[in-house]
Write a protein that binds this DNA or RNA. Structure first.
Lengths: 359, 359
DNA sequence: GCCGCCAGCCAAATCGTTTTAAATTTCCGG
DNA sequence: CCGGAAATTTAAAACGATTTGGCTGGCGGC
């Protein structure tokens, strides 16, 4: 599309003009502002001061053209505007605030159609971004191979099993869920239901593994009927929890994938006339949202906690490192996850612990 | 900061090269691709096809430099990554998908410090964006005057009372809350509490007005002790609701500002041993989230509903119109809001309707 | 057959920087 | 006071597109 320049009255001083006012050449001014060593400290200072006073700022598009840099990091937003997303971005923003780098959000088209990799391909070749962050990867994620092939620097938020060397930042999902499950087992629970994220995603697999390992360690048989996968919505939390609670014997504890899921689980438990923390224990993973906090739930929710905002900030940092030349396969960070016990977890009720006596 | 070009192996064909392969001049090719009339239909078609085949795409930074356009719309993300944000952006994305325009997210720094207007000022003069969208305006919003002064096209999502002509898209907050409140009054409620958004924002004021008008129409005195303002978090919903319920006589109905607020209200009501939909009626405003739906709450939540995603899509559309020359003061859209009645609203309990008989 | 016109194409200027390679100034010991 | 290295500064060439203004050649009118 083509639009007029109407309205865009902002008239910048140009380098040439600015340099003339200073009695210097454009070259020197440019160098002074970019902090090159060839220019004397005195001159640099003067240039910097005058730039502020006269309001000179380099035309960013000219800079981009000549340097070949886009000055932006691309993020692809999931198909259904996930609630976690803005928190992660806030974190990124926090870190990028001091740099001269933007965040470019490319949303994936609703109707889907042409496959996702084409979107990434376009993003990578468009020259709009210097790097890309990939979310919710799968063990064999073709996006990783694709971006590697295209030579576009990228960071994976999460992990993948691909051979392609790549930078990643992830939280210890397996350990978190293992500890959560173990703790429930310590409390006497034996039938523990697990509402996990979408099937096929690495973090879901890791959580499944953590869950299974905890059971294994204590010799508790794994029952596939106690595990569900899906989006992190209150609706699915509710539905899955209800269907689990309809089983006989019913589970006495839940591991929920997110705060939204936990909301659904709470509702489901209540709808059975049961009480969370007494009849049914619940632990959920908490990404630490300002608008929905585990402490405030009733009863307060035990969680595995890891700040998504912090992850966003660190991600931005790592991308900057990547761009300044640090090799991708040196950039691997695995963050531990806290386990915070609150009121939603408690010892298994006596009647459930020995169902044969009552039934 | 300065980083090497390492990794960025993507090697685009240049216009000159591409044109040579076609046996045409760069000029003609450029024009063909941009759809100018001076080039024959046959040639245009051939160019378009070859561009796809050979993978030629104009270097976006060169285009930006020469046209002076940034090819991006700026959005400033609130201080605390609001959960609504990603939904709105998804909508924008949906609309912008077919255009060659990016969404640039500028997060406001956490520590605050230098005032917000400086951020907008920088964004406007940076040349990174062609237009800006302003959220959560206040009646006298200095950002509007600022952007107008700077000559940067912008759309206000919400409304303001400033004299400066500007484009806006808003939902009928006043009407929505007026209808919601009226409906509660029809059901016999007289003490209706209102948990509104942050004080000072236009939409909060409009909602206050809607609330007060509904009361006025029915001759119910306004009691400032029944109105609270604050962020849309579950925590505030809970706290405010509790403090209202501690009053005597207590309110029999709540108007909640958001789904998160409603979650808090539900909890608070329950914590008093009361039942939503029977003892206490609740209506909340619902922006329609995929991850938290009013229908799924227990009891299902009556809402005033307006799709934030749709607003995002339309906003993007209006910005495009703005950029193609449509005068800002012609662009005003006020969307009606649906009132969806579900189980959380019901007639006032007899004992509350005539408290003097019981007390 | 000549002229003007128009569709279709092109050469060259332009956008506002960074950066290469060269020129100038400064400084200092001999 | 001079030669040459070191410290500054500069002119000019990119970067890769769009766009202005001009150049062709074919066609119809007279």
């Amino acid at each position: 599309m083509q639009w007029g320049r109407a309205g865009n009255t902002i008239d910048h001083m140009k380098l040439k003009e600015f340099a003339k006012q200073l009695g210097l050449s454009p070259t020197t001014v440019s160098r002074a502002l970019s902090g090159y060593p060839e220019v004397s400290e005195k001159t640099r200072k003067r240039v910097a001061e005058e730039a502020v006073r006269l309001g000179y700022r380099p035309n960013i598009n000219a800079v981009r053209l000549v340097t070949g840099r886009a000055g932006a990091i691309g993020v692809v937003m999931g198909r259904n505007g996930e609630f976690q997303f803005s928190e992660y971005m806030s974190g990124m923003a926090e870190r990028l605030d001091s740099e001269d780098i933007d965040i470019l959000v490319t949303p994936i088209a609703e109707q889907g159609g042409n496959d996702e990799s084409q979107l990434y391909s376009r993003l990578a070749t468009s020259g709009r971004v210097d790097a890309v962050i990939i979310h919710s990867p799968m063990p064999k994620d073709e996006r990783i191979a694709l971006l590697h092939r295209l030579g576009m620097p990228f960071l994976v938020h999460g992990r993948s099993e691909t051979d392609v060397p790549h930078a990643w930042l992830d939280i210890d999902n397996e350990g978190a869920i293992r500890r959560a499950t173990s703790h429930l087992i310590d409390l006497g629970h034996r039938r523990i239901a697990m509402i996990n994220g979408r099937a096929g995603l690495t973090f879901s697999l890791h959580r499944d593994q953590g869950y299974r390992k905890a059971l294994e360690q204590r010799g508790i048989p794994f029952d596939p009927r106690l595990v569900a996968h899906g989006h992190f919505t209150d609706e699915l939390g509710f539905r899955f929890a209800r269907s689990f609670l309809e089983q006989s014997p019913r589970p006495t504890a839940f591991v929920a994938g997110s705060m939204m899921t936990a909301l659904g689980v709470y509702r489901a438990v209540r709808s059975f006339g049961l009480v969370v923390g007494r009849d049914i224990s619940v632990i959920a993973h908490d990404d630490v949202f300002p608008y929905l906090t585990a402490d405030n739930m009733v009863p307060s929710l035990s969680t595995t906690r890891s700040s998504l905002r912090a992850a966003g900030a660190r991600s931005a940092d790592l991308v900057l490192q990547l761009l300044s030349g640090r090799p991708a396969n040196e950039i691997h960070e695995l963050w531990p996850v806290e386990l915070i016990l609150r009121e939603s977890t408690g010892p298994v009720p006596h009647s459930d612990a020995f169902p044969d006596r009552t039934g």
